[in-house]
């Protein structure tokens, strides 16, 4: 992520969360946080406890973020933010929490007349394969709540559509036949199927590494009748190091009414 991208990201993030930009230049921006945002990113729970307990005047912080320190000539005092910096990671985390659930309606051109919009459930999954190494994959699935048809490249398909967060008078919104809860279960199954068909030599190889290290460890304590505690500790460490598991996590998802 280049400084310019970081800058645009911060800008969009704060505007979207109703924080005013007090001042902005190409390389830095000063933001007036809302109370909710201050609580989320300023790490000062005691201040807020105090304000609330005493009915004090809340005074959310104003922060300056410098997004390209190298390009700065003047003496702006602020927090340097770059890709990999703890602050940006924190804002990424906030984005994850604040952009997880949507209900969207496709925009309808008033001149076309009444349009029928079909409900879909869209879910983005992050799947991680973990042993002593990791690999992650992102899957985007959508399921038609009338027919049960599954689209396995859903996010790309809906990304360029114009959306509204409210219903329009010119559209007719069809009621779902498949309940969203049920639909989610179907998508979960679809993910399971994909994982099952995948190549899992990584897990077998991890098991081989595990067995090899276990043999080495056993050899060390071969002639010891009563294995000391550190044998058990090492054995447990090997298990934690190598045992293969798969994590499935939902990044975000929602209901989409579309043509």
């Amino acid at each position: 992520m280049y400084p310019q991208q970081v800058h645009n990201y911060l800008r969009q993030f704060f505007l979207e969360n109703e924080c005013d930009l007090v001042f902005e230049d190409e390389h830095y921006l000063t933001v007036q946080l809302t109370i909710a945002m201050d609580k989320r990113i300023m790490n000062r729970p005691f201040y807020w406890q105090y304000v609330e307990a005493t009915n004090g005047e809340p005074n959310p912080a104003q922060v300056t973020f410098i997004t390209d320190q190298n390009a700065m000539s003047g003496k702006v005092i602020g927090e340097v933010v770059h890709f990999g910096s703890p602050r940006l990671n924190q804002i990424f985390q906030a984005t994850r929490e604040l952009g997880a659930f949507v209900q969207m309606f496709q925009k309808v051109d008033a001149e076309i007349g009444q349009v029928l919009l079909t409900p879909w459930l869209g879910v983005n999954y992050k799947v991680s394969y973990c042993c002593d190494r990791t690999k992650e994959m992102l899957y985007s699935f959508g399921i038609n709540l009338l027919t049960g048809t599954i689209n396995n490249n859903f996010h790309e398909a809906i990304n360029s559509i114009d959306w509204d967060s409210t219903q329009s008078e010119n559209a007719f919104y069809v009621q779902h036949i498949i309940k969203p809860e049920r639909a989610l279960q179907r998508l979960d199954k679809a993910i399971d199927a994909i994982i099952q068909q995948d190549d899992h030599t990584w897990a077998e190889q991890a098991k081989k590494r595990w067995q090899r290290d276990q043999r080495v460890l056993d050899y060390f304590y071969e002639d010891v009748e009563e294995k000391p505690e550190c044998y058990e500790v090492e054995k447990k460490a090997l298990e934690e190091q190598y045992h293969a598991k798969i994590k499935i996590e939902i990044v975000n998802g929602g209901l989409f009414y579309m043509r």
């Binding site: 604040l98 952009g99 949507v102 959306w163 967060s165």
Partner: peptide, 12 residues
Amino acid sequence: KWHSWTLYKMNY
């Protein structure tokens, strides 16, 4: 409350 489409896309 539901979240905004922009933040949803940023998250993805």
